[in-house]
Design a protein around this nucleic acid. Structure first.
Length: 481
RNA sequence: GGUCCCAUCGUCUAGUGGCCCAGGACACCGGCCUCUCACGCCGGAGACACGGGUUCGAACCCCGUUGGGACUACCA
């Protein structure tokens, strides 16, 4: 009994605080999105906080447009944050304060080495078979602040730094391998490794889930925490996402921007579901609602190996969610794609009924917008091969017959329609397909479509009769020429 | 080059020493359903990188090899 109480209180002692810190040098990419999802899920799972921070200390590459693009993507994925967005460029005094503390404590020092000279020294060290690390020239010169001077961290020359990674286990680094990294650039802006630590310390971040491309940065960061006397957060390094050639996922593997997936007609829940399952698992389950993800997410089930991004599986998930959605809910999502194609406006309920027939046949909204064409155009255009095969003199009479039957059909619904087609087939002594295909081409212009009766039902009597009439005219015209 | 990480079907993964001559999913192949195309359903092919240990027993533990990846900036 008391054991249970103990366990409980120790768990609830520190509320979880996670963060997602993108740098606004471009759009939100697939890998970043997954990291954001993991951090968000963990915070939600444990009733903690999720903080958004914009790491814009790269003054040259950071842009306002990128910030907006990232925020838009977060919103589209429905990843809400509890605090922020904080901007590092607005926190310069904070870094300065901590920097002075480090310098005063002897943990950091000023350095006036010329960047180009530094580069030459590195090259020379490499050529001599040594390590390309900073040679420590200014380490003990006792320099003070001044123009063109950076601040470097005084890294211990010996000893070990251990990273107890929640995913990879303990990783030991020899401090001698590390060098005196720059904390503050000569323009007064902090470097990444310094700013993250200060931000994470001051924002109370106690769990850092990030890509494992950061593993080698972590010992340097741990050393800074220690120099500051700050408590260490827990670290969880998630394996990378690879392209199909097993190289780090990049533009040459196809779309890597989250918002491009929106443009390609993907649903956010499909992307999120795909991404969360890329590297994490919960037994054999493939489909997860938000609630299920939150309820089941755990670091223990994140794998150690990098994963290849598989567009086919994403497509399958998207098709799944497309089928599952209420057709009416799909209308506003599909509309932008219809406008792009220049279709004329139609009422919501008409679109919803058309969409319902296309749901099991489309993998993306883009496919759906293409497929919905014959429901929206004033005049169908015939696929030449389809017309050549099914709109010929021999089919004239069956189309005419169906036109006559449908003109009088009452009520004009799917059930009656099927009856009508079947009885005409019987009457003519042919299989249903013999009648259905020519009519299908007359109505849609193509040989593959949703069930014929569904199509007729959506189109309505007037349009159906018109299109059948037009098909008859077409056949006659063909016969004359 | 140095440091670090990783290794189950083509791909994502289950698997935490006996339940595994390895399960699920995508993709692929075959069948069923059927007015076409899909959806759906049923079935099939397909993997523990290699070599050594440890153990009564290894996909699971250890070592090595090989292969992949990351980092190595006054980028983040």
């Amino acid at each position: 009994m008391s054991f249970i109480f103990l366990k409980r209180s120790s768990i609830s002692m520190a509320a979880i605080v996670t963060r997602f810190p993108p740098s606004p040098t471009g759009y939100l990419h697939i890998g970043g999105a997954r990291t954001a999802i993991f951090n968000w899920l963990y915070a939600r799972r444990h009733g903690g906080k999720f903080i958004l921070r914009i790491e814009d200390t790269d003054l040259v590459r950071s842009t306002e447009a990128s910030v907006k693009a990232i925020l838009d993507a977060m919103e589209w994925l429905e990843l809400d944050w509890d605090e922020g967005p904080f901007y590092q460029t607005e926190r310069l005094e904070v870094y300065q304060e901590y920097l002075e503390k480090l310098v005063a404590g002897g943990h950091a020092y000023y350095c006036d080495c010329d960047p180009e000279d530094l580069d030459r020294r590195r090259q020379a060290a490499m050529a001599a078979g040594g390590k390309p690390k900073y040679d420590g020239r200014c380490r003990d010169r006792g320099l003070g602040p001044g123009p063109n001077r950076v601040v470097r961290f005084r890294c211990p020359l010996a000893g070990e730094t251990v990273l107890n990674d929640l995913i990879k286990g303990p990783i030991v680094f020899n401090n001698a391998e590390l060098d005196d990294l720059v904390l503050q650039k000569s323009d007064g802006i902090p470097t990444y490794n310094f700013a993250v630590v200060i931000d994470d310390v001051t924002m109370g971040i106690n769990l850092i889930i990030r890509g494992d491309d950061h593993v080698n940065n972590t010992p340097r960061q741990i050393l800074i925490y220690q120099a500051l006397g700050a408590p260490l957060p827990r670290f969880a390094h998630v394996p990378m996402i690879l392209g199909e050639d097993r190289a780090r996922l990049s533009k040459r593997h196809g779309a890597t921007s989250v918002m491009v997936y929106k443009e390609m007609g993907f649903l956010p829940e499909a992307l999120v579901n795909y991404l969360v399952r890329l590297g994490w698992s919960h037994g054999d389950q493939e489909i997860f609602s938000r609630e299920e993800m939150i309820a089941n997410f755990s670091l223990e089930h994140i794998g150690k190996a990098a994963g290849v991004f598989n567009p086919d599986k994403l497509l399958w998930l998207n098709a799944h969610y497309l089928k599952e959605r209420d057709p009416a809910a799909l209308v506003p999502l599909l509309r932008p794609f219809l406008h792009q194609r220049g279709y004329s406006e139609r009422p919501d309920d008409y679109l919803a009924r058309a969409i319902a027939t296309l749901q099991p046949r489309c993998q993306t909204l883009v496919e759906m917008a293409d497929a919905i064409r014959y429901y929206l155009v004033d005049e169908v255009d015939y696929d030449p091969a389809a017309a050549a095969k099914f709109l010929r003199p021999e089919t004239l009479s069956t189309i005419a017959r169906m036109q006559a039957v449908l003109a009088d059909l009452d009520p004009f619904d799917e059930a009656r329609m099927e009856q009508a087609f079947r009885s005409v087939a019987e009457e003519l002594g042919v299989k249903l397909g013999k009648i259905a295909q020519p009519v299908r081409v007359a109505l849609t212009g193509v040989t593959a479509s949703p069930g014929l009766f569904e199509v007729i039902d959506v189109l309505g009597r007037k349009t159906v009769l018109e299109r059948l009439g037009k098909a008859l005219d077409f056949i006659k015209a063909q016969a004359r020429s």
